[in-house]
Each structure stands twice: as C-alpha cells, then as structure tokens.
Design a protein around this nucleic acid. Structure first.
Lengths: 228, 228
DNA sequence: GTCTATAACCGGATAGAC
DNA sequence: GTCTATCCGGTTATAGAC
C-alpha cells in the first residue's frame, strides 16, 4: 500500500503522517501566497525542510497536491453555507446564498484556481471535474445542491427534481469558469452574474415545472440521461 | 519587425518564409500524428531539419504553433459547412449541419485538442478562447453562426437575434468541451448530444421568441449584455 | 539585417543508494 | 522513509554565419 493510498484512510498517527501533513500544509500555504506556477516542488520541499525526492514519495505529482485543495475548498464552502442559509426558503434565495458563499470562500484561491484550471481542464488529468477520479468530490457537491433544492419551498415535478442538482452543478461550474476569468474589482462582475443567474435559474425551474412545458422538459431530461 | 509579425503579413516569398512554413507544417503533422505532449520542440526541429534555436526564432513558443491550428480548423469547418448546408432552411436543420461538420472536421485533431485544451483553459494564455488575443478567431466563429441563423426561416425578434450568434457560440463551446472528454466509439455520444441539443436549442429559440416570454427574454438578454 | 547553431537554465519527475 | 544524482523537455542566451 502506497503512502498516497494510506493517506486516504484514518491515520493521523502513522509514522510518516507528520511529514506528509507538513508537506501538504506547506504546499497549500505557498500556493495561496505565490500561486501555482511560482510554487515549485523544489521550493515546497525546501520550505518544508525535506528533500525533493521525499516530497515525491508522499505526493506522486504536483497535481496530487491539488486534490487536497478541492477537499478543503468544499469543506469551507459547506460550513459557510450552513450558517448563511438561515431560514431562507425560496429557491432563488437559496441559490443566491449558495453561489455567493461559493464565491466568497474561493476568493483567497482565485489566482491559484486560474492556474489550477489549466491542469484540471486536461481530459487525461484526474483533477478534471468530469473524471472518475473526481467523482467523489463531484457527487459531494451535487449532494449539497440537492439539499439546497430540497430545503426550498419550490414545487418541482419528480422527473426534474431528480436531475436538478446535477444541472445546478453545471450552472455552478459555469459561474466558476466565469469567475476564473474575472479580473474586475472585488469580483463584481461574477457577483452580478451569480445573483442574476440564480434568479434566472429559479424562474426557469418554475417555468419548466409548468404542466404545459412537460413535453419539452421530457425531451431535455431524456437527453441529459442519454448523454451522461 | 520580428518574423512572427512579418508572418501575419503577405510574404510567401520572403527568404525565411520557406523555413517558417516547413516548421509549421512539420509541427501540425506531428501534432496530429503523435499528440501535443509527445511532439517535443526538439523533435519538430529535428524532423524539419532545422536547429532547435531556429524553431524558436520563428515561433516564440510551442503555444504559438497552435494559433495556426485554430485558423486551419476554422477554415476546414467553414469549407465543409458551405457545401453541407445546401438548401436547408430550418434553424434546427442548419444548426445540426453546423455542429456535425464541426465534429467531423475536428476528428483528426481529437487527441491533440485534448492536450491543447489544457493550455487553452489557462486564463493567462492567449490561446484561451475568451481572451483578447483570440477575439479575431472568436468573432469569426460567431460570424459564421450569424450566417447560419440569418439563412434560416426562423422568426426571431430583433433583441434576441442580436445576441443569438454569441449564445450559439457558447453552445458550440459546450459541445466541444463534451467532445474533448468523449471516449466513445466514433464519438457517438457527442454526435447524439450535438443532434439533440441542436433540436433543443431551436425549440428554445422558438419558445423564447414567443411574445409571452418577452419579460424573461429581456431579463436574460440584459444579463448577458451586462456581464459580457 | 536575416538566419542558424550550440550550450546552457529551469522545473517536473524518476532511480537507486542508504 | 529519506536523500542525492539525473533525466527530460520547454525555453533562453549568445555567438556568429550569410
């Protein structure tokens, strides 16, 4: 069993676990401070006080250090979301809170995320959000959206309700894509996009839930299922 | 004036133009045959029979060789589209032809496109389809879509008509994103997605063109304008 | 001023000794 | 489990040839 696999398990006590944590925390700090490209593996090793080879012993590649970022970013988002959601019950309101907290908790990593995205976009990369390797993180994020929908007072037909979290996840990915490219002060443009698409999406859900829209809705949902 | 700039101009006759072409054709061939990562700058230079330094004299970086791919891919698509469009007049039909020819003409570059996408996803990269540097290629592609719409018999209100080509370009990007990740035989899944979203998009355009949808349409169009 | 070649540098990744 | 020595490929510096 490689240390990479072992890390996925319990052990905070393991022999090398100390070293592993040290390397990981050092890397995340440097990524945040200096960005991805500027943080070389040599620098991470040096700063952590271990050898280059040793860093590679614990992390198969530089990319593997990023998995930790995903997980951490998700945790921070969920925590912020729980408190911010309060007793908001409209779908539009809940979606707005969801996407705003996502933007807020990601802000510190904006620069890093841009460079990261380059790697994540590679279809061969396990970091790519559509990959099998990312399915755990992806399904977790979709699960969060399912709770956002289920906690709302929106009346959504069962067929749409089943697919809606996945569709909303794609909306989230779209907003993130925009955010990554957003150079505006305080990410103002992304915030505008986020708020207004949250409203728009809620309206579309309402329209799509109308019985008159059933044929079109069926067509779209079948397509999604087929193509997934 | 650097040779990179000069190349953008007329000269097929210039003294180094021969060398430039040779390097470019060699690179495109190798990219297609072996993929992007496997085609090293050293290999390109060697295969073309020039020195490594010489290759860098003509192309500032490996990425710059890709600009040529964009242009070529577009040319091939437009050519195929013109003949395939025939006298198709329905919007759904024209969109289907558009997207099918795109998939067909891109197929030879599938592997290459995946690796390319990694670089293109970087917000800092001039290759990124949303960047200023790509605006010429992007606007050309949007122009093609405007012709696809204008040649159809669909009745589209002026406000939507103005934005539609840009929206369709985003649809195209989405399909390409899916295509890049598509490992299915003969890219069957992308073809299904393409055909069926073409139909769906045409239906959505019809619905959005309905006077009853005017408020929602306005809302969406204003959002797009604000956020562009 | 136009072009070509050689020798480096730098950072991700690996091999293998201890 | 940790290290040192190396490889490999993108990129740059630079010396000069035509």
């Amino acid at each position: 069993m490689s240390p990479q696999d072992a890390a996925a398990e319990t052990a905070l006590t393991g022999r090398g676990e100390q070293t592993r944590r040290l390397i990981l925390e050092t890397a995340l700090r440097l990524f945040k401070e200096r960005g991805y490209d500027e943080t070389t593996m040599r620098l991470i090793a040096e700063t952590a006080g271990v050898s280059l080879g040793n860093a590679y012993y614990y992390f198969r590649s530089k990319e593997h250090l990023i998995q930790a970022y995903y997980a951490r970013s998700n945790e921070e988002h969920v925590a912020a979301l729980e408190t911010a959601l309060g007793r908001e019950r409209t779908l539009a309101g809940r979606l707005r809170v969801f996407i705003r907290t996502k933007i807020d908790t990601s802000e510190a990593y904006h620069r890093f995320a841009g460079q990261l995205f380059r790697t994540a976009a590679d279809p061969e990369s396990p970091l790519n959000p559509f990959s099998d390797a990312s399915s755990a993180v992806r399904e977790a994020a979709i699960g969060v959206l399912a709770r956002v929908v289920d906690g709302s007072d929106a009346k959504v037909p069962a067929d749409l309700r089943a697919e809606l979290p996945r569709l909303l996840w794609m909306w989230e990915m779209g907003v993130i894509l925009y955010w990554i490219h957003d150079r505006s002060e305080g990410r103002a443009r992304t915030r505008k996009l986020a708020d207004r698409t949250a409203e728009l999406v809620a309206k579309l859900v309402a329209i799509a839930s109308n019985p008159l829209m059933r044929p079109l809705r069926k067509m779209a949902l079948e397509l999604i299922e087929d193509v997934r």
